[in-house]
Design a protein around this nucleic acid. Sequence first.
DNA 1: GGCAGAAATGAGCGCGCTCTCACGGAGAGT
DNA 2: ACTCTCCGTGAGAGCGCGCTCATTTCTGCC
Lengths: 338, 338
Amino acid sequence: MSVKAQAQAPTLEMVAARAGVSRATVSRVVNGSPKVKPELISAVNEAIAELNYVPNRAARMLASRRTESIALVIPESTSRVFTDPFFASIIQGVAMHLATTDYTLGIVVASEANPDKTRRYLTGGNIDGALVVSHHSGDHSYARLGRSVPVVFGGRPLHAEDNDSVFVDVDNISGSMTATRHLIERGRRNIATIAGPADMPAGFDRELGWRRAMDEAGFDTSLIEWGDFSPASGAMAMRRLLARNTPIDAVFAANDQMALGAYAVIAENGLSIPHDIAVVGYDDDALGSAASPALTTMHQSANELGAVMASTLVKSIEGETVEHQTILQTRLIVRGSS
Amino acid sequence: MSVKAQAQAPTLEMVAARAGVSRATVSRVVNGSPKVKPELISAVNEAIAELNYVPNRAARMLASRRTESIALVIPESTSRVFTDPFFASIIQGVAMHLATTDYTLGIVVASEANPDKTRRYLTGGNIDGALVVSHHSGDHSYARLGRSVPVVFGGRPLHAEDNDSVFVDVDNISGSMTATRHLIERGRRNIATIAGPADMPAGFDRELGWRRAMDEAGFDTSLIEWGDFSPASGAMAMRRLLARNTPIDAVFAANDQMALGAYAVIAENGLSIPHDIAVVGYDDDALGSAASPALTTMHQSANELGAVMASTLVKSIEGETVEHQTILQTRLIVRGSS
DNA sequence: GGCAGAAATGAGCGCGCTCTCACGGAGAGT
DNA sequence: ACTCTCCGTGAGAGCGCGCTCATTTCTGCC
C-alpha cells in the first residue's frame, strides 16, 4: 500500500479492467440496466467491492446533466427561522427523506444583497430542484424560479399570482379555527390572539382562522397584537394586550414560542393559567409539553411536512405529475393550559 | 428567442467567442488570475454579463478535482439535535459564513444502518471537507475520516485517541464551573445538577465543571440526575431529584431546555424560583430570557461556533495550517432565576 | 446448416472546465 | 542589432462518466 494509494480513487475504467469487461458494461451494472448477463453483473460487483469503487459524482453530473442534488433555499432575512424548532423539524424531515434516495441536500442562504448570485446558482444547472421555506411577500422571484427548475414551497404562497406554484402546507386556517373554537367551548369569551407577521402565510392564516371562529361565535375581534414568532415578541405582545385594561380570559398564540413568552408575562402579572387566562399555542414544540401548565396546542408534524415536500420535489424532478397543493392536517392537543 | 433558449446554459466557450478571446483567458478571468490584461478582463466580464454566464459546477469539479462543497455530517441517532436551538444556531452560523465564500453546504444524515454509504460518500471525492457535530463515543469512524479529507468537529472529541482531530468547542468545563460558583456565591449549598448524557462531550464536561466547583467548595456532589438535553428529560430529572427528599436549594442544568423542563416541575411542587430553588441553565436560548423568571444561563454564541468551524475548515481545505483546538469563551448571564 | 432478428457488449464521442505547455511579442542586456 | 527573459495568450489534452451506435454473440426457426 503506497501512501498515495488512497488518494487515487478507483474509476470506472479500473473496475472494467479488473472485471475484464468494458467501461460501458460497468456503467450499466452500476446504474442497474436490465440487459447485462448475470455472471457479468456479479463479476463487476466483485471488482467494485474489491476496489471499493464509488462513482465520481462530478463526472456523473457532467455527463448526465443531472446533479442528484436539491437545494433548500432560505431567504437571509428569515434565516432566523433556524432557531424556530418548527423549521428545524422541517429540515430534519427533508434530510431524513432524502437519505432514502440518492439526492443530496444543499442549504442555500439566499443573500438578499446579491440576489442574482443565488438565482444564477439555482438556475445554472447546479441543482435538480429547490425547496423554499417561509417565503415572504418579497419572494416573487423564487416563484418565478419554478419555470426553470422544479420548486416546492413550504407554506402556501401569499399571492394569488403564484397560484401555479407547487406547495405543501399545514392547514393553518382550520387549525387555528379549531384552536379558537376549543377556547370558546371552554366558556371563554374575551379571546385575544398573538398573531404572527401578516406578511407570512402562517401568520396571516392563523390570524384569519381566529377571526373566522370569533366571527362565527359573534365575538369581538379587536383583541389582537402581533409578534414575530419569537418568544420575546410573544411576551411583548402579551404585555400590550394586558395594558389595554380590557377583560381577557384566553389567548391564542400563533406559535408555541410566543405562547411561552406570554406565559412569563401572565405569571408576572399575578394571573394564573388557565384559571384567569387560558392559553393555546400552535406547533406542538417540545417545550410546550414540558412547560407548567403544559401547553394546549395544535399539533402538526413538521417532520412530515419536510418529508412530503422532499418527496413531492423528487417526484416532480423525475417527471411524475404531482399535486399542486398538499395540505396536511393538524390536531388539537389539549393539555393543562386551557 | 426559441423555447429552449433558456435551457441551454451559456458555456465558457460561448463567452470566449463573444469576447473574442480563448477559453483559457475567460477561465483566468473567472478565477481571478492576476496575469490578464485589464482591457481583456473587462471585455470578458461584459460578455459574461451579457450572456448571464454562470460556471458549471460539475465541470469545474471534474476538471479541478475540487468540489467547493463541504458536508455537515449528522449521525442519525443524534438527528434529534435538529430540534435543539443550540444546534440550529450552529447550522446557521455555518451557513452564514459559507455564504461569504464559494463553498456550498450539504447536509448529510449519516445512516447508521448503512454507515459505509456515508463513509464512501465522504471519502469518494464528493466533498472537500466535513463538519461533524455532536459526535458520540461511537463516532471513531468520523475521526478516522480526518485522514482522507479535512474534518472539523464541533465539540471536543471524547476520546484521547482522537487527539489529533481538529475541533472547535465552547469552554464547557470552565463555563459550568462559573455557573456553579455563581450559585455558591449566592449562598446556595445544596446544589443539584441535571446533567446531559455522559457520552457526549457537552454532557460530560458540564457535569465535570459542576463537580469541580462543588469539590472546590467542599460540597456534596451526589445531587445529580441525567437527562438527554430535551425539556421533557429535564422535567423528569427534576422530579427524581425532588423525590429524593433531601434539601435542594439550587439546580444547575446542562442546557436551557432541561432547565425549562425543571421550571415546570418546580412550580408544580409549589416551590418558587429563585426563592426556594435557584436555577441556572446553559446555552442562552431564546426561550430562557422570555421565561418567568428569566433564566440565568451561560451564554455561548452558537452562531460564532458554527462560523468558526466553517472558517477553520475552509482554511484547512485551502492548505493553511490551523489550530487543532479552538475554544470559545462563555459568559454568565445573570437573570431572575438565581 | 444457414440466416434473420434479438440480445448483449464494446468503442468512442462529448459534457464544460482547468491546467500545462508552447508560442509570440515586448523589454532588457551585451 | 541580436539573443535572452519574461509576460500574456492560445491550443489542446484530459478529468470520469453516460450514451449512442456499431459490432459481436446468441437464439430460434426454416
